[in-house]
């Protein structure tokens, strides 16, 4: 358990670090995808099948592709970006690192002091939760959180319609 956790964590971190530091943007996205996949594997290891597979479906399948497309549309493929680690960029790196660790600290503190997390997990708790995972998520989404879900759906639909409208307007402007 711990060994596989460390392997997966190392994979995820390696992926995300590579995503920040590689010079070729497409490589960055591929590395980021590796990070996403590692994260999904971590979820699976925690027994959260639904979240894990959704992570793969959405992030590896859709977000990565979207990012690729965005990069290819805005930048010539294969153009090499400037080196990432240069002395002149050092202040930026330090500032970024500080912000990241601050965010991490806040999150860690919030999660640690949260009431939702039982302080001591019974060792047998994980598998039984995993079995009921999908059903529990479904029930929660359909009963307790049905309103937020619907609002989110409405918001996304509105965004979709907005995007279509914007695209249509552009087409009309064309001679």
């Amino acid at each position: 358990m711990t060994v596989s956790f460390f392997i997966l964590a190392a994979l995820t971190i390696a992926g995300t670090v590579a995503a920040m530091s590689l010079r070729n943007l497409v490589h960055c996205v591929l590395a980021l995808t590796l990070g996403f996949a590692g994260l999904a594997a971590l979820y699976l290891q925690l027994g959260a099948q639904f979240v894990g597979f959704t992570q793969i479906l959405v992030y590896v399948g859709a977000v990565a592709i979207l990012a690729m497309f965005a990069i290819m549309m805005t930048q010539r493929a294969g153009a090499v970006a400037q080196p990432v680690f240069t002395p002149s960029r050092m202040p930026g790196w330090i500032a970024g690192g500080m912000i990241a660790s601050a965010v991490f600290a806040v999150l860690a503190w919030a999660i640690h002091s949260s009431a939702a997390l039982p302080k001591t997990l019974p060792p047998q708790a994980l598998p039984s939760q995993a079995d009921a995972g999908v059903r529990a998520i479904g029930n929660a989404l359909m009963h307790r959180f049905v309103l937020p879900l619907e609002i989110m759906g409405l918001l996304l639909t509105a965004a979709l319609i907005g995007a279509v409208l914007v695209a249509m307007q552009e087409q009309q402007e064309m001679p």
């Binding site: 497409v26 591929l30 995808t33 099948q49 639904f50 597979f53 959704t54 793969i56 479906l57 590896v60 399948g61 859709a62 990565a64 592709i65 690729m68 290819m72 493929a77 995993a130 079995d131 995972g133 999908v134």
Partner: peptide, 23 residues
């Protein structure tokens, strides 16, 4: 438990492979 979801999640990885090949 989430077998069908797993199936579609894995299927979406194919897209990435295709993109990698093409690019």
């Amino acid at each position: 438990n989430a077998g069908v979801l797993f199936f579609f999640a894995v299927g979406s990885m194919v897209e990435l492979a295709v993109f990698m090949a093409g690019w």
